[in-house]
């Protein structure tokens, strides 16, 4: 089986969490001799050939980060240039990842993705979703790789079943919400997290405070 993967993040491959996840998912998918090809929307000069590949292939995975509760603008822009397929047997699955940790944060976008394939004349093949992926690129290659390793098995799973079953995905993506105890603990370590972010930002060249209000003077309440 051959899978066409379209990476729908605006970030270049080297800095993309979505693409680090895809590296693992792909390995799992190819485990049994399946093949994949990955194309990148951030390479805008390749959109014409990505469109052609979309029309030629009948097994497609769109991979995307959650941007403000739905698909990123760059993905919306690309999709708007597609013509719906006619009389085809194309199946579209999705990989959706976010910085927010709880699966519940991805449900609004998921409900949109469920409706999208039929608008393109295709069938829906399920959505693999997972939160808490913000640090994958920041943590460096070793720890980042550990975070994305579980996607290997999901790649294998998708190759075997050619569908992301909702129950399997829910189990993979949990927690749906954090428990009260977890929220309490997270609030306790919150000052540490803030300190870590401050140090990290300084390393990146940040000269001010992370809470700076550069446009404060414009506010009218």
């Amino acid at each position: 089986m051959h899978l066409l993967i379209v990476s729908c993040t605006p970030r270049a491959k080297e800095k993309s969490n979505t693409d680090k996840i895809l590296d693992e998912l792909r390995k799992g998918y190819e485990y049994n001799g399946n093949t994949t090809e990955t194309l990148y929307l951030y390479k805008r000069n390749e959109w014409e050939s990505i469109r052609e590949k979309f029309y030629e292939n009948d097994n497609i995975l769109f991979a995307l980060p959650l941007y403000v509760e739905c698909i990123p603008g760059i993905m919306a822009e690309f999709l708007e240039t597609l013509k719906p397929k006619q009389n085809c047997n194309t199946k579209i699955g999705f990989l959706l990842q976010s910085g927010f940790a709880e699966a519940s944060q991805l449900r609004c976008c998921e409900s949109y993705l469920e409706t999208l394939p039929s608008l393109l004349g295709c069938e829906y093949n399920g959505t693999l979703l997972k939160g808490n992926m913000f640090a994958v690129s920041f943590l460096g290659s070793k720890m980042g790789k550990q975070m994305v390793e579980p996607f290997y098995n999901m790649g294998k799973y998708y190759a075997q079943n050619n569908y992301f079953n909702k129950e399997v995905v829910n189990d993979f993506a949990k927690p749906e919400y954090f428990s009260k105890k977890e929220i309490f603990l997270s609030n306790v370590v919150s000052p540490l997290n803030k300190l870590f972010m401050k140090v990290f930002a300084k390393k990146l060249g940040c000269k001010g405070s992370l809470n700076d209000k550069p446009y404060q003077n414009y506010i009218k309440r």
């Binding site: 698909i71 603008g73 919306a76 708007e80 608008l119």
Partner: peptide, 9 residues
């Protein structure tokens, strides 16, 4: 495609 245009997104 059932969502706001990319310009607004």
């Amino acid at each position: 495609l059932g969502f706001v245009s990319y310009k607004l997104k």
